[in-house]
């Protein structure tokens, strides 16, 4: 199977097992460049697992098994010789809980780019400012760049984590329920940020919040019990869903 050169990410018949539990069952999906792709579904439907396969964070869990294929720009990322560290620099992940490192705001942003080979005070300062601006956090923290990141509020910490991912200048950004613990104002800020980032990045957004998916994404896939039930244009899926289960889910009859 060769990937369509148009696709940013191509997922082909992907299955994933934690021991005996099958978390993903025959997922086939392609993500276009510069789109915000939504993954929605009830908890335990496999959304987060799918996200973690895309930058191989699933490697960190003991006793998992993956079958099928995933290609990023036509490159097989499940291959045993895949450079996982390099992959994660290209495909950034923002987790549902804010996970600031116990360092200053500045260091949280500059550490990974520096380790990836970005040199010079000027270049790093610029990365820090650009990514904080992109995450709409610059105004709030520009005077406390050298304070501990742990002192920021939850919403600020989450935007810091987004900024930290942007600082690596990835091609794809994976967001795993990035606003689940946040208040409506912080949530709105993050959503506004995502819409701006679309021009430069390909974004995959996992969310339990169907309204957020409807607001923020271009296309959406509905997952249920480890399988994809429906993929389509967000507007179309939300107005005329092709599958009854999708209709039930988005209208809040279950999940």
């Amino acid at each position: 199977m060769t990937a369509d050169p148009q696709d940013k990410i191509r997922i082909e018949d992907l299955s994933f097992f934690f021991g005996d539990f099958q978390a993903l069952d025959g997922i086939t999906l392609s993500i276009q460049p510069h789109e915000i792709f939504g993954l929605m579904g009830p908890s335990k439907s496999g959304k987060s697992t799918l996200l973690r396969v895309l930058n191989r964070m699933c490697d960190l869990i003991v006793g998992v098994r993956v079958t099928g294929g995933v290609w990023l720009d036509g490159e097989d990322i499940l291959a045993p010789d895949c450079d996982v560290v390099g992959l994660r620099r290209r495909v950034g992940l923002v987790l549902s809980r804010p996970t600031p490192l116990p360092r200053s705001v500045y260091e949280n942003l500059a550490l990974a780019p520096r380790l990836a080979g970005k040199k010079g005070r000027g270049a790093l300062d610029e990365v820090v400012e650009t990514s904080l601006r992109a995450a709409q956090l610059w105004g709030e923290v520009k005077d406390r760049l050298h304070d501990s990141a742990l002192k920021l509020s939850g919403g600020q910490q989450q935007r810091l984590c987004l900024a930290r991912t942007l600082a690596m200048e990835p091609e794809v950004i994976l967001l795993d329920e990035p606003t689940s613990g946040l208040d409506p104002i912080s949530t709105a800020k993050i959503e506004a940020t995502l819409l701006q980032l679309k021009n430069d990045y390909t974004i995959i957004l996992v969310s339990n919040n169907t309204k957020q998916i409807a607001r923020a994404t271009d296309r959406v896939a509905f997952l249920l019990m480890s399988q994809i039930i429906e993929i389509g244009d967000t507007r179309q899926v939300f107005t005329v869903p092709a599958n009854r289960k999708t209709d039930d889910y988005i209208s809040g009859r279950f999940g």
């Binding site: 390099g86 620099r89 950034g92 923002v94 987790l95 116990p102 990974a112 380790l115 990836a116 991912t165």
Partner: peptide, 21 residues
């Protein structure tokens, strides 16, 4: 564990994660 997860998801190698964080 979150520190490690954060480091790995930023494309830091295991050695960098261990020594820096």
């Amino acid at each position: 564990q979150d520190y490690r997860t954060a480091c790995y998801s930023l494309g830091m190698s295991q050695w960098q994660t261990v020594t820096r964080i």
